[in-house]
Every structure is written in structure tokens, then in C-alpha cells.
Design a binder for these strands. Sequence first.
DNA 1: CTGAAAGCGCTTACAG
DNA 2: CTGAAAGCGCTTACAG
Lengths: 334, 334
Amino acid sequence: MKVKIIDLAKSLGTSTSTVSRALNDAPGVSEELRAKIVKAARDMGYMPDQGARNLVKRTTGNIGLYVPRGLFFVMSNPFFAQVLLGISDVIDDMGYNYILSTSPLQHRKMFRTNLVDGIIMFALRLGDPYIRELEEGGFPSVIVGSYNPSVDMPAVRPDDYQGMYAAVNHLAEMGHKKIALLNGPLSSFKSVACLDAYRRSLMEHELDDIYEKAVSGEFVAEWGLEGANALFNEKDRPSAIACANDLIAMGVYRAAHERGLKIPDDISVVGFGDFPSAVYLSPSLTTVHTPMREMGYEAAKVLVEKMKGTSSVEHKALFQTSLVVRESVRRYEE
Amino acid sequence: MKVKIIDLAKSLGTSTSTVSRALNDAPGVSEELRAKIVKAARDMGYMPDQGARNLVKRTTGNIGLYVPRGLFFVMSNPFFAQVLLGISDVIDDMGYNYILSTSPLQHRKMFRTNLVDGIIMFALRLGDPYIRELEEGGFPSVIVGSYNPSVDMPAVRPDDYQGMYAAVNHLAEMGHKKIALLNGPLSSFKSVACLDAYRRSLMEHELDDIYEKAVSGEFVAEWGLEGANALFNEKDRPSAIACANDLIAMGVYRAAHERGLKIPDDISVVGFGDFPSAVYLSPSLTTVHTPMREMGYEAAKVLVEKMKGTSSVEHKALFQTSLVVRESVRRYEE
DNA sequence: CTGAAAGCGCTTACAG
DNA sequence: CTGAAAGCGCTTACAG
């Protein structure tokens, strides 16, 4: 049987009010009594029931992590592991628990039923429901790694456009004339930015008349493999492939290997994200670095401010990306 | 202002008792009234406060995920992503939310304060605290991917010993005489099993007198890189390396690439786990397949039974592993 | 089938 | 500084 506050109070010959005050560091308890109560609480292993506590305090000590793409999507994408690292840096020491929700209904429940004090949203896409409802409720929340243009909510994310622009520019400057883009789904705002950047770079280098090929898939290695295979099967093949993330690039590596194409000798590839594994690929991957951990840190900071109610400013943080040149792109000469 | 059950009751001219019964599909409400109440609830956007509900029902609708190694460890290890997939297969449809806890204190709080209805524990290691307390409390819980010999608790995990045994046997049968093991930390039960299996295989093939080298590190690519580099630096170099997981193998790939060693021509490597990325490495990785998703599924099933109180049997599931031969091991001839 | 009342385990004014 | 009482928003016997 769990020990409750009344048990503690009785065993000490005091009241529940005093015990509560003592354990919550509230003023108005003599130091001797407080010490005695704290000791007894430890001895008896007392811990306040969360439901009861939340009910009266209107606060939960939980922060919500909304992952509309599903747990697997997030867990198998190193981007989010890194972002979460940054979030942990600020949240863990504050004693919060994380509540994960993967479906729109669970998400709605989180902010409608006093389940969490704030919400961080991952991998938001076009058409995800209940986002407007969240916004209108004024519930503390922040979007990380993405954003939703139709909603006025703090968002912490990388400058995907500049990143992809730099990547394609690099390819063009290395002499490549036929550059393909293996993109993510267009329901992802990031993919849209990547597509725009790709097109602009091609146009500025007057390459779009020679070759332009952007195909949409998913942010996974499977798609990189499939997409690259399709590209390789065409008569007019690209000499370089830009990928919307490093996982896709990994798939391209595999496709190249399967046909005996060498990277970068036969095909150049550039990734996006600079996941930890980028350095472990052979050859190591030239890619666009995104400050994932820093973004997680920032997002958590913003959320904490919002939860404290001190956040006045509309917070839209755009983190700069930078191209990291490694071994997967070669200079192209006809 | 959030709408509560009393608001609903008033607006319908009925009582909170009836509203509660109607919304909880409890018997004793006329169908007409129930329908009216359900409709009104939807219209007014009513959702019951979780704290209040948990308090009286003594149940939470949350299941706890305890990850003592930290969020990052779990998120950057595909093993857990896969296991979680299996868990999702059974849990998601039941409407539970997940509560993540990363520290022993948070974990303890979970089962002591009515925060969750059951707990799944990941990557448990020697000396993790509060496990015995959990067991003694009889709280529904299950260990996945690991186990704790000193505690009587259901555990769903792969047969690490047989897996590593098969891996090293394979290497020996392919003619390798100098086989090294890049292991995980010995605080992990899995590492201990791997070490035992490695030694036994070596002995059975009478290889232990020729060469025996097992080194402990972490279950990450960084360690594979570092460990392999150390191995390569010695005068007496192995011709094959067995790794305690696929991430470590990835590090070995990198180390080989950096010195211009070809896999499998110059060095053979076998992994453990068969993570999705194993197929994407070049060459593809020969490794021990572990049924990760199936184990997650099983663990969740066991937990659900425990939560329903129907679980009588002590559930210890040992999942069989199997060697998947791909491209990273060659036949060795002197 | 329906409602008034008690109670879940806390915290917090309100008195003293 | 301390305690009795009210109340957080629900659910569930208990009557009718």
C-alpha cells in the first residue's frame, strides 16, 4: 500500500497542511518541524500522487513531445536524436518527464486535459491537424526543425533554403552540369525550400536548360536507393546528386555500390544535415551542417520561457547552415 | 477557459454523474440521453481532466519507457527504434501515451506516484538503481533487449550468446585464425554474453593460443573507429573483427577506409544486430540478425497482460538470432 | 434510468 | 507557526 500524506501526518502527529508545506518548501513551517517531516517522508518513502497534485496545482511537471510522423520516423532519423540532445541539455535538470504523443488525437489530449505544461513539436508538415487549435489556446509550445507558415507559433529551425542553395552551388562550382535532386516529400516545408533553392542555383548557373531533375520521396535511405537507381537507369544520367538529407545520401551510396559506381569518381553526392554517420561513410560525406543540438537547446529555452509566461517576443529562430566539404564530391571535367 | 463536466451537465440540464456515465460507456443511461450528451461533449470540446480522472480511477492511460542510458543513447541506436516499432504495434491503438524517463529518480517517480500504468525498460545495466524496488512493488513492468539476473522480472531479449557464438564460428570456419572482438562495456549483460561466446568459440576452434583479443568499449561507431585503429596499430594484427553491434562495425569500416584497407579483402568484419543500415554499408555487412521489432511486440504484449493482471506465468522470452551472410567476410587463406 | 453525495490525495486560502 | 476546511474535476457507490 502506497503511503499518502495523511499517513505521514498521523505518524508525526501533525496535519496534512503542514506536511504539504514542509515538503513543498512553502513558508510558514518551523525549521525543526520541517526537518522532521522531510526525514519521515524519506524514511517512509512518501511521494505525492501526481494526479492529485496536478489537479490542484493545474500544472503537471511533464513536457510533451509531439511526433506526428510516428515514433519510428523520429527515432530512425539522427536529426531528431541530436535535437533531443539539445532539449535534454535544458530540460533534464528541471525534473520534467517527457510525454510522447504520436497521433493527432493524443496530441490534442495533451494540451486539452492538463497532461503537460508545454509542447515541443517535431517534423510538422502541411496539414497536420490541431495545430491551429493549439495556437489559439495559447498553450506554451514551440516547433523545432520545421515550421508552419499558417500559424503564429515560435519555430526553431535551420535555414534549409540557404543550405541547399550552398550545396547545389558547390556542385555547380565543381564543374557539374547535370545535377539531380533527391528530395523529401513536398508536404514537408523543408522539401519545398530545398526544391526552390535547387532551382534557383541551377538557374543562376544557367544549368537548368541542360539538365534539371528533382524527384520527391521520403527522408529515408530506402528512397535514396530507389531514387538513385531510377536516375542511373536513365540514358541521360547526372554526374552529381544533391540529397535532402544524409539518410537519402546513404541510399545513393548503396545504389552506386550495387552498380560498381565509385563515389566520387563516377558520381558525386552531397547530403544535408551532417548527421554523425556522415563521417563514417566511405568516402566521408560532403554535406550541409545543421546545428541540431543547438536548435534543440534553443527550442527548449523558448518553451521554458513560454511556460513561465515571460516570453513576450515572437520567437522565430533561423539557424545558419554551412557546407562541410569532405570526400564525396569531385571536380568534374568533361 | 476549459470546459468541465459540470458545464456540460448544466447546459444539458442533467447531472455530472449521468454525463460521466454516458461518456465512459457505463451502463445505466438511456440511449437518447447518451447520444445527446456525446454530441454536446463534442460540440463543446469537452475532454476530461487527466489529473482528476487518474486520481479517482487509480489508472493513468500512460505507459512508461525507462531509458537509463539517456535519450540520446536510445535514439541514436537503431536497435531501440526497431524495438519501439514493435511496441507501437500493440500499444498505439490502445490509446496510451508514452512517458519517457531518463534518470533513476524520474523512473522511481513513475511507479511511485501513479504516473503510468506499466513500464518498459530499455538497455538496463548492472547496478541500475530502483529495479529491485520496482519488482517488489509488483508494478507491471518488463525489460526489453536486456535483463537483470538479480531480479525476477519478465524480460524479452535476443540470445546474445548464441548470436555471437555463431558469428565467431563463422569467422573461424572461413579460415580466420586471428579474430578480435570489439565489445561493449562489461556492465552490459549483453557484452558479458558476447565475451563468453567469443572465448568459447575460440577455444573450440583451438584458436585461443594463436590470438585472443577482446576489448571493451561502448556501443557506438566512435568506439569501433578507435578500437579498430588500436588493433591496426599492433604488430600482430587480426584478419577478422567481430563487433558487439552494427554501430561498432560502422566504426571499423571507417578505420579501414582511413588506412586504405579494403573490406573484406584486407580485413573481415561481422556485426551484431542487423540494423537497417547494415544493408546500406559498402560492402554490405555480414551480421547477426536480432528480431528487434518482434521483441518489442512481445514485450508490449507481456506488459499489457501484466497490466490487466492476467499474467500468471513468469515471462522470460529468449529470441533466437541468426547469422546473415553478406559481403564483409572473406575466406582467409594463409 | 437518474441524481445527490462521498471521496480520490493533494494544496491553499482562511482562522487562530 | 499550525490546523480545519474547502476545493481541484472527476467517478462511483448509494438511493430512489
